[in-house]
């Protein structure tokens, strides 16, 4: 198509309009409708072409969708509700609030790390009452840490399952990638805290999880069946889903286990 002054119809080298411009005219999206109509009035070939396009498109009947009853919305909701994934509070947050929550999580992790460091250094002059309170606080904070990691593992498991259960020639995983990216940030904090607290088994699973979440984040947003097979193979080889599930269950058990007071030796006078 040649460039023409705005007052003239867009014509190609042969002096005729392209099918594309005629289709746009049919749908009311021509940039120069007046000049296009003027051209059609003076060009029999283009007018015939336009008539053919209009006639074809007029043959495409309007689609009448089957009727759905007044209670259709309720029926959809009843089918849908059992399928809804569990949603933690963090899941509903916007990216800005996610960052804020991650900041808070980081602060909490630092506090827990500080606690973990203090746990192995008990001042010899500590009074027995302080020691009992400290043990109770320690139990509460430990439970909070385990619960947070267990929640994180469950969210991560859902992302991994969504990706591995995907099916189709080109599966769009962009929403799972965004979700995985958010989980990577949280994972890093939990992993570092676990390392500092000396929880090597937790740190190892989180390390493996982080690498697999990053693989998902950096994969193409539309996965082919081969890509999906590769993801599944990697996860299967590492038995990652199994490890994540076992660790999550283990943490839940530890979270509900009774707190055993830390024995504190009483200084004899």
């Amino acid at each position: 198509m040649t460039l023409t002054p705005s007052s003239e119809a867009p014509v190609d080298m042969s002096g005729h309009m392209t099918d594309e411009d005629l289709v746009l005219l049919f749908y009311g999206e021509s940039a120069q409708p007046a000049s296009v109509h003027a051209h059609l009035a003076s060009c029999a070939a283009c007018a015939a072409e336009y008539a053919a396009i209009a006639e074809t498109l007029a043959l495409v009947p309007a689609v009448t969708s089957p009727e759905r009853g007044d209670h259709y919305g309720l029926e959809v909701w009843q089918r849908l509700r059992p399928q809804l994934p569990a949603r933690g509070v963090l899941w509903t947050l916007s990216p800005a609030r996610w960052r804020m929550q991650l900041g808070l999580a980081a602060a909490a992790v630092l506090a827990i790390a500080a606690f973990a460091a203090g746990r192995y250094w008990t001042p010899q002059e500590a009074a027995p009452v302080q020691a009992v309170n400290s043990a109770a606080d320690a139990g509460a904070e430990e439970r909070a840490r385990l619960m947070a990691i267990a929640d994180h593992l469950e969210r991560s498991e859902r992302v991994l399952l969504e990706v591995t259960n995907a099916d189709g020639p080109f599966v769009d995983v962009s929403s799972q990638q965004e979700w995985a990216a958010e989980l990577v940030d949280a994972n890093r904090l939990y992993r570092e805290a676990a390392t500092q607290a000396g929880d090597a088994p937790i740190a190892a699973v989180l390390d493996e999880l982080e690498r697999n979440l990053l693989d998902i984040v950096h994969a193409p947003s539309k996965l082919t069946p081969t890509d999906l097979d590769n993801v599944r193979t990697r996860l299967d080889a590492a038995a990652l889903l199994f490890k994540v599930r076992i660790l999550s269950n283990d943490l839940r058990d530890r979270e509900t286990a009774p707190v055993v007071p830390v024995p504190v030796s009483r200084k004899t006078t």
């Binding site: 759905r68 259709y72 919305g73 959809v76 909701w77 809804l84 899941w91």
Partner: peptide, 16 residues
């Protein structure tokens, strides 16, 4: 905010 009933209301409103 995670209120399932509220989401249910949206589903019912937009299903058709």
């Amino acid at each position: 905010q995670g209120d399932e009933d509220a989401f249910g209301a949206l589903v019912q409103q937009h299903s058709h």
